[in-house]
């Protein structure tokens, strides 16, 4: 066979070693290029046990601007008044399935059924539908407790500007009584909010590499300034723990895809030739 005579001895071993090295090289690099896990980047949270309270309870705010700041995978307990609107916020990353689980311990002496609702909003206050969970429940006057929960869709690394897909950034949780008897307002209410974030923030090798959000949806928190004609404002730098724009990701973009594909072809060719040599002349390998 003519082709087999092209590669002999050292050449064969070199080729197969190259191919093996190319495959092996991939193994450790997987960990290096994956999106950081939320546990490692939880910021002030520190310890990473799921659902653990971070120690101090975060009290609710009464609006988006005053929302109580929580971390994902923490819980909080607070007292409030029935009929109040309670807001909390927390950061979340691409690939995470976040959810808000709410337990309301209701006051006694209520006169009528009350409907409670939990809503999740993204960083630009777009209401996110609950893909899982039951966000609304009605408590009868005699009920001592009601549970509601809402888990929006998996957070994506990027979406078209016109879509309202969930993106990395700040998320808001609002708890409200949507139907309540006027007599039952202002009573003491105990609220427990548990935030969970499943998924480690790595949603595969394509995540945020061709297209990525350049700034997480973390809202501005300063008073605005009216401009004079001809003025234009600077771009605000937005930062969030664990957020990666993917700009400096290894081999990103279309160029990266060409490199991956070509490299894949070369590896396939080398391994094909090695496989052929091994099958054709196995004794040469075990001399």
């Amino acid at each position: 066979m003519r082709e087999s005579s092209l590669f002999r001895g050292k050449a064969v071993r070199l080729a197969s070693a190259l191919a093996a090295a190319a495959v092996l090289a991939g193994t450790p690099a997987v960990a290096a290029t994956s999106t950081p896990s939320p546990n490692a980047t939880g910021g002030s949270g520190g310890s990473s046990g799921a659902g653990n309270s971070s120690g101090t309870n975060v009290l609710p705010g009464t609006s988006f601007l005053t929302a109580g700041k929580m971390e994902a995978e923490t819980s909080t307990t607070a007292t409030a008044s029935t009929g109040e609107y309670m807001y909390w916020s927390f950061p979340a990353l691409a690939g995470q399935d976040v959810s808000a689980k709410v337990t309301l311990t209701l006051p006694g002496g209520r006169t009528a059924p009350t409907t409670w609702r939990v809503d999740v909003f993204d960083g630009i206050r777009r209401h996110q539908p609950c893909a899982i969970g039951r966000p609304q429940a009605t408590a009868q006057a005699a009920d001592a407790e009601v549970k509601i929960d809402c888990g929006p869709r998996t957070i994506r690394p990027w979406s078209e500007a016109w879509s309202a897909d969930p993106l990395p950034g700040t998320y808001y949780v609002r708890i409200a009584a949507t139907e309540i008897q006027e007599k039952d307002l202002g009573l003491k209410l105990k609220v427990t909010l548990e935030l969970t974030a499943d998924g480690d923030g790595d949603i595969g090798p394509d995540a945020g590499q061709d297209d990525s959000l350049k700034a997480p949806l973390v809202p501005i928190t300063r008073g605005g300034q009216v401009l004079q004609p001809g003025q234009a404002a600077e771009t605000r730098k937005v930062t969030m723990a664990g957020f990666d724009t993917g700009d400096d990701a290894w081999l990103s973009g279309t160029t990266g895809r060409w490199v991956w594909t070509a490299a894949g072809g070369v590896v396939a060719m080398l391994l094909g030739i090695s496989g052929f040599m091994f099958a054709r002349h196995p004794r040469r390998w075990f001399r």
Binding site: P205, D210, W260, T261, L271, G272, S274, F278
Partner: peptide, 29 residues
């Protein structure tokens, strides 16, 4: 969304190409 031109990326993609190459070579051999 950027056009991918049908190109691939990632270790799984590379592994599949390598695997197919190896199996093809062995079978042919």
């Amino acid at each position: 969304a950027a056009d991918t031109h049908g190109l691939g990326r990632g270790w799984i993609f590379l592994g599949v190409l390598a695997g197919v190459g190896l199996v093809g070579g062995l079978l042919f051999g």
